[in-house]
Design a binder for these strands. Structure first.
Lengths: 147, 147
DNA sequence: GAACTCGTCCCTCACGTCAGGGTTGGGCGA
DNA sequence: TCGCCCAACCCTGACGTGAGGGACGAGTTC
């Protein structure tokens, strides 16, 4: 299905491979880079998580390198089981901290709460892992005894 | 919410604590024991995972010790991310193996496949945990540097 | 009569999937 | 050089799914 060769953009002079910095890419390329599905990327936009930097004349979404970075952050957050709403808040928090304009102390406080939630989720994940390992082990035991 | 004290069954003579073996309990007690919600237990029944051993005259679900054991198995499977359908199959498999009647070799083969799937899910969980730890760590780093 | 349970209904979340149509840009004929 | 075609890509909108959550009015049990 995915025919990578049939790109509709000819390589410019000096361009070696992939998309050069400063260029915008459309959703398919972003999906390839991030490993997210088109639907997922659009869904994140619907929910205000990552808005494409631009749109083409005809309405195609055009993403910058920064947009892709945001998507990567989301991808790294996912195993923590945060809701989209929480991810949105955290993303906003991080960009606000980068461009210092808000109430620094309050921002850091909120960030600390996220960190607490994250570590809590990590221990929950560890517990889940232990249960999972236990179950897999008991399956193995069943197999051994019934051989 | 969960009022443990308000049991609607009076203790019989000779009964010290909890529900004695051989007795049936209704859904609330089962929920307490398993840590599953009433809704979840009913949902599992709807999907053929755990049917109550009996019903009261008036239609209350009545569960045996074995039923509770099945629910516990499900609870232990959950972190592996199996679907309800898969859990149903695995439960059936196990009971078929206990009461030996079917094609033993084939049953064991299917069990082996479950074991493989389980170990695969375990490694996936480990990966997720690693990502989660990484993210939590980067949050901590952010906090440190912005202090 | 208080606590418990029943079945039924709609709600949520994070997407998947389908349908039907529009856009992009290279290539080709004229 | 202009126009058109075509494949590949993309759009919106709507409905479906999995695993339950929550509420409700009525019935049951003790």
């Amino acid at each position: 299905m995915r025919s990578a060769a049939a790109g509709n953009r000819v390589a410019c002079a000096g361009e070696v491979t992939g998309t050069p910095r400063g260029e915008l890419m459309q959703i398919g390329q972003v999906a390839e880079r991030t490993g997210l599905s088109l639907r997922t990327i659009r869904f994140y936009e619907e929910n205000g998580l990552v808005l494409p930097t631009a749109r083409s004349e005809g309405g195609f979404r055009l993403y910058s390198q920064d947009d892709v970075a945001r998507l990567d952050v989301i991808k790294r957050m996912k195993p923590l089981g945060f809701s989209l709403e929480e991810m949105q808040e955290l993303l906003g928090l991080l960009t606000e901290l980068d461009s210092d304009d808000g109430d620094r102390a309050q921002l850091l406080d909120r960030l600390r709460m996220f960190h607490e939630a994250a570590t809590a989720r990590v221990t929950a994940l560890r517990d889940q892992l232990a249960v999972a390992e236990g179950f897999a082990g008991s399956l193995a035991a069943h197999l051994d005894s019934r051989r």
